[in-house]
Computed example of a mutant assay.
Amino acid sequence: MTQDKKSVGDLRVGLVAADPMRILGLQTIFSQSEGEGGPVEIVPLSVPGALDASGVSLILIDSGCTDHIFELLATFQRTRPRLRVIVIGLEEDHEHIQRIIGAGAKGYLAQSANEREVRLAIEVVQDGSVWAPRKVLARLLESTSAEASRVKPAGELKFTLRELEVLRLLVAGHPNRVIGQELGIDLTTVKKHVGKLMRKVGVDNRIALSVEAVNHKLLSKRT
């Protein structure tokens, strides 16, 4: 089957950063890149501009540009709840990153992240998942008792071979584009498989699906 033509290269990504060199660096790297996903358009924004920005798919925020990152995330949650936000920071402590994600960010990147990591983070977040260290994701899932109570008993679950192939790649952290490339299916088909997997397991997001797959060894299940 043919691949969906839309890729990360079709995205306009807003960037809120105090360092002009960071802005220029990302713009240069992505505009000249010929790697997977094609060039990404980086749109420099101020904090007020980010709150009103239209035409951008998500926002990257350098936490160094503000001393009030949590207040800023709360403002985004209140005024633009559907806009996806990825925070870039120096902090490596898992509890701090967990607070960032808990405050509404859909991803956290270290300032040392390379182009490939930034691309993957953008794609994973665009696919509806969260980009953060796996330990952080597991803690977030464990802290959501209501979510855990809806998960179906592992013994009741049965998957097709194709669903297991999709689940394996999802657990490995691959975005939909890569899953489609690996399996030779288009993005619409990938999304349908992921949606069906979530319904079978009894979760409503990809992170919960991945963690449950690991915790309950779901990759060994068959129809």
Rank of each mutant, 00 (worst) to 15 (best):
His216Gly: 06
Gly184His: 09
Ser54Arg: 09
Ala18Arg: 14
Gln27Ala: 07
Arg116Trp: 14
Lys158Val: 14
Ile179Thr: 01
Asp93Pro: 01
Val118Thr: 09
Leu218Asp: 01
Val124Asp: 06
Gly64Ala: 15
Leu58Ile: 00
Thr223Trp: 10
Pro48Ser: 15
Ala17His: 12
Thr2Met: 13
Asp19Met: 11
Ser149Arg: 12
Val16Lys: 11
Ser46Gln: 13
Lys191Tyr: 07
Asp19Ser: 13
Glu182Phe: 05
Leu164Asn: 10
Val56Arg: 03
Val214Phe: 06
Pro81Asn: 11
Leu167Ile: 08
Arg99Thr: 04
Asp52Trp: 15
Ala148Met: 07
Gly180Trp: 00
Ile100His: 04
Arg150Ala: 11
Asp52Pro: 07
Val203Gln: 04
Ile29Leu: 13
Val118Ile: 14
Ile97Gly: 00
Ala18Glu: 15
Arg134Asn: 05
Lys196Met: 15
Lys191Ser: 11
Ile97Tyr: 05
Leu169Gly: 11
Leu24Glu: 12
Ser7Phe: 06
Lys196Asp: 10
Met1Ala: 15
Pro48His: 13
Ile69Asp: 07
Glu165His: 12
Ser31Asp: 14
Phe159Cys: 04
Leu197Ala: 12
Arg82His: 08
Leu169Gln: 02
Val16Glu: 09
Gln32Ser: 11
Ser112Met: 09
Ala138Arg: 04
Gly9Gln: 00
Ile42Trp: 01
Gly173Thr: 08
Leu83Ser: 03
Val56Ser: 02
Asp52Glu: 15
Trp131Val: 01
Glu41Trp: 03
Arg199Leu: 14
